[in-house]
């Protein structure tokens, strides 16, 4: 009987401690499976199966890819991977786009990707009541070894932060600022913290490559059609890249299509006949070529700079 009040006060103290501990931001990266070494060359795929807004999904993907690079892995360029996914008939712009692992293994093998990193079931949580605020980003990432055809690494990852008047010791201005904070910015920060926590769990790659050769533009041809206000561009260079062309000084660049290996074609809008056209290639790991500027007057050759 004498201990009853002590027990209740002890429970209250423990509850208080738990609440205060919860006040801090927390990150977790729990490894569920690791039954083989990670492939050195990996591609991080667009998130699937969650409810992330597109911008946050892109941010999370970039951060996780960066975590792999930080640990010495070679990451395929996101834009290159997305283009290949579309060309393979997949629909990565949908939230439930991911097919079965056999199909993805075949995709990886077809494009020479040893490891595919899936970002699965990522979801955001947001409670903003001033008294108690909580934001969280949780999900799972899984590495599929395309040569073995099975998942070799699975991580359960999450990042959260809590605040509000209840948890911030009456520091009312903290609680107000926390409640008014831009949610998108906070979620982006959580994505960064989550990726840093995941990077700590990844083993360092045993064989990091040195910097390889850049892709190369060998020639650019342009044919201006003044009546249509367009320029037809043909770029010759390293195959299996993404190619872009633009007019000097203009903002933005037009993507070209690889009509044949190493031959990229496309049509640019040109309100007035341009004097030159600029071309650049970007390969599968994101390395870009030197910018190649071709004079349209010569129409068949140009000089690089």
């Amino acid at each position: 009987m004498l201990f009853a009040p002590m027990r209740s006060s002890l429970s209250a103290s423990l509850l208080g401690l738990c609440l205060l501990c919860a006040c801090a931001a927390s990150n977790r990266a729990r490894q569920l499976t690791a039954d083989a070494a990670l492939p050195v060359h990996v591609a991080v795929l667009p998130p699937a199966g969650g409810d992330l807004p597109p911008e946050l999904a892109a941010c999370l993907r970039a951060e996780v890819g960066n975590a792999f690079e930080l640990r010495g892995y070679v990451k395929y360029d996101d834009g290159w991977v997305d283009q290949r996914l579309a060309q393979a008939g997949l629909r990565p712009w949908q939230s439930d786009w991911l097919p079965v692992d056999e199909s993805m293994s075949a995709f990886g093998r077809m494009y020479g990707i040893d490891g595919l990193v899936f970002l699965e079931d990522f979801a955001v949580g947001n409670i903003n009541s001033f008294v108690y605020n909580e934001r969280s980003l949780t999900g799972r990432f899984r590495v599929l070894d395309t040569r073995a055809g099975r998942s070799t690494w699975i991580f359960d990852v999450g990042s959260s932060e809590a605040g509000g008047a209840l948890l911030q010791s009456g520091q009312i201005f903290d609680a107000v600022a926390d409640s008014l904070d831009d949610v998108e910015v906070r979620f982006r920060a959580l994505a960064g913290e989550l990726a840093l926590a995941a990077a700590e769990q990844l083993p360092r790659s045993a064989s990091t490559d040195a910097i390889g050769r850049r892709p190369e533009v060998r020639g650019v041809q342009g044919r201006s059609d003044a009546a249509a206000g367009t320029v037809e561009v043909v770029v010759e260079g390293t195959p299996d890249c993404r190619a872009f062309a633009s007019l000097p000084g203009s903002t933005g660049r037009y993507p070209l299509s690889e009509a044949a290996p190493g031959r990229y074609v496309g049509t640019l809008a040109a309100p007035s006949p341009p004097m030159a056209v600029v071309a650049v290639l970007r390969d599968r790991i994101g390395a870009s070529s030197k910018v190649f500027t071709a004079s349209l007057a010569a129409s068949a050759s140009g000089g690089s700079r």
């Binding site: 960066n66 690079e69 930080l70 960064g192 840093l196 040195a210 910097i211 390395a287 870009s288």
Partner: peptide
């Protein structure tokens, strides 16, 4: 690390930092 992640995108091409260190 964070700066590399922030800059990486369609506008600039950032070399893998591990490759930079190796070179």
């Amino acid at each position: 690390t964070l700066l590399v992640a922030r800059l990486q995108g369609e506008a600039v091409s950032i070399v893998n930092p591990s490759m930079v260190d190796q070179t």
